[in-house]
Design a protein around this nucleic acid. Structure first.
Lengths: 93, 93
DNA sequence: TTATTATATGCCATAGTTGGAATATAAATT
DNA sequence: AATTTATATTCCAACTATGGCATATAATAA
């Protein structure tokens, strides 16, 4: 199979392979949030959250919307909810 | 949320965050395969494939079945096929 | 027992990731 | 224009992953 395909796919899973970024995805499953809201809920430094969001965004998993001083992030792919749900169910066992 | 939950979940995505391991998952979507079969199809060294399978297995994504000298691996979670399908569709665009 | 075959493990240099602290940018307010 | 607030970027030391090669294990066959 083509290299580029698997490289892009790898980037997607790398973006998800971090506890803070997975928590961000879980927050966004409940609807769009701005950076400071996420930083506050996860009790993380703002630059850390900003970098985490950048990684998720450049992998194509989330999108952003600017409004004044705030930047709001939300999920960009449909199947995230289902897959995370399935993984959660698997982890329950 | 509890640390252990997100650590385990992170381990799952880390296991998937590698082009060779993603290719292995794609092969296993078509049915169980032994190590040498996978190594041959992916044109990789056997130790490399063996370590890759070990990582996928300890994350709980695949399971193994021994039969004589061979060890056959297959997918252990249901939703892998759907999620990979969705990611592939997303990458087409 | 010895040889063969399939698989797993250990070692290791290189490359990539992590998150903290300081700093930069950019929009809104005074 | 100066200040404030939200977000993004840079630098960097500590940590972790990567894959090649040699070697170990384990099952079968001769």
């Amino acid at each position: 199979m083509d290299n580029k395909f698997y490289e892009k796919k790898t980037e997607i899973f790398k973006a998800l392979a971090n506890p803070v970024r997975l928590q961000i995805v879980d927050l966004l499953i409940d609807g769009e949030k701005c950076v400071c809201e996420i930083a506050e809920k996860l009790k993380c430094e703002q630059p850390h959250i900003s970098k985490s969001l950048g990684k998720l965004r450049s992998a194509g998993l989330i999108k952003d919307r600017k409004d004044g001083l705030n930047v709001y992030y939300s999920l960009a792919i449909c199947c995230m909810r289902e897959f995370v749900g399935c993984i959660n169910k698997m982890l329950d066992e």
